[in-house]
């Protein structure tokens, strides 16, 4: 499990003017269950995410956090209950799945950039082939987002030539090029050296400031405190507790949460 880094985010003043939670529902998960063979990974998950929410999911390793957010864009299929993303019900219909995937951006722990393509090609691939955007336009969009994550000068390099932090920022830009309405992050900083964590968290904060709906699995509690409007604690495939960050950290209700927090915050 990744260590908790509480320091890097603290230094920055956050602009909250665009961070508004609307009434519109972005993701609706109801009574969702998932098994790996006979192993019950996710049990009775109910979760409603409104547009504009920034949700941090934490919990011990193996508690099903990754599985949960991977179910949302159908990288894993669930066996019971329903998931509705942007009004589209996730079913076995491949058309629906591809539509949801193109609306939902995902950032992985290990970046999953395509090593045989340049940074620019990584960013333009999906817009060109999925959205049928003309190449010129896709490249302009890609450059815009590469500017935003502050690495436009690397556009013609290959992923293997970049540092981990740079690769993760490219991965974020690649997702953004599809103009997603929701972004999922699965431990985006836990494969990074400490000095690179900050640059990635900065990029994510910027995204939150722009009003993106975000679900973030992370152990960066500083990020959770400052950016999240809700923190969810998972254990053994269940949502044990969820609350506003202030309350969650000051007044955890369940013992498991208390134990987890004491371990991760180191006192």
């Amino acid at each position: 499990m990744a260590e908790a880094h509480t320091n890097p985010v603290e230094e920055r003043q956050i602009d909250r003017s665009q961070m508004q939670v609307s009434d519109e529902v972005a993701i609706e998960i109801a009574g969702m269950n998932k098994w790996y063979g006979t192993f019950h990974v996710l049990r009775d998950i109910d979760l409603t995410v409104n547009r504009g929410e920034r949700i941090v999911i934490c919990g011990p390793s193996g508690s099903g956090k990754s599985t949960l957010i991977r179910c949302i864009n159908a990288l894993e299929e669930h066996q019971k209950g329903s998931i509705t993303v942007d009004g589209t019900l996730l079913s076995n219909d491949l058309k629906n799945i591809d539509r949801i995937r193109s609306e939902v951006g995902m950032v992985f722990q290990h970046f999953n950039l395509f090593p045989h393509l340049t940074i620019l090609e990584n960013c333009t691939l999906a817009p060109i082939w999925v959205r049928k955007t003309p190449k010129r336009e896709a490249e302009e969009t890609a450059m815009y987002f590469l500017e935003k994550v502050k690495i436009p000068e690397q556009a013609n390099k290959y992923p293997g030539q970049l540092s981990g932090g740079q690769q993760q920022r490219v991965a974020i830009a690649r997702s953004l090029c599809m103009r997603p309405r929701i972004m999922l992050f699965d431990e985006p900083t836990s494969a990074l050296d400490p000095e690179m964590i900050k640059e990635v968290l900065d990029t994510m904060i910027q995204l939150a400031e722009d009003g993106m709906t975000m679900l973030v699995v992370t152990h960066e509690m500083g990020f959770a405190r400052q950016v999240a409007n809700r923190v969810i604690f998972m254990d053994q495939g269940q949502i044990v507790e969820q609350n506003e960050p202030e309350e969650f950290f000051m007044n955890p209700k369940s013992d498991r949460t208390k134990l987890f927090l004491s371990q991760i915050l180191g006192h």
Partner: peptide
Amino acid sequence: PRGQYEGADSLGLDYWQSMRL
């Protein structure tokens, strides 16, 4: 690595696109 399949899937590429590209 599995991540390559997942990276392609998560961007909404369909099966033949992700295979070919």
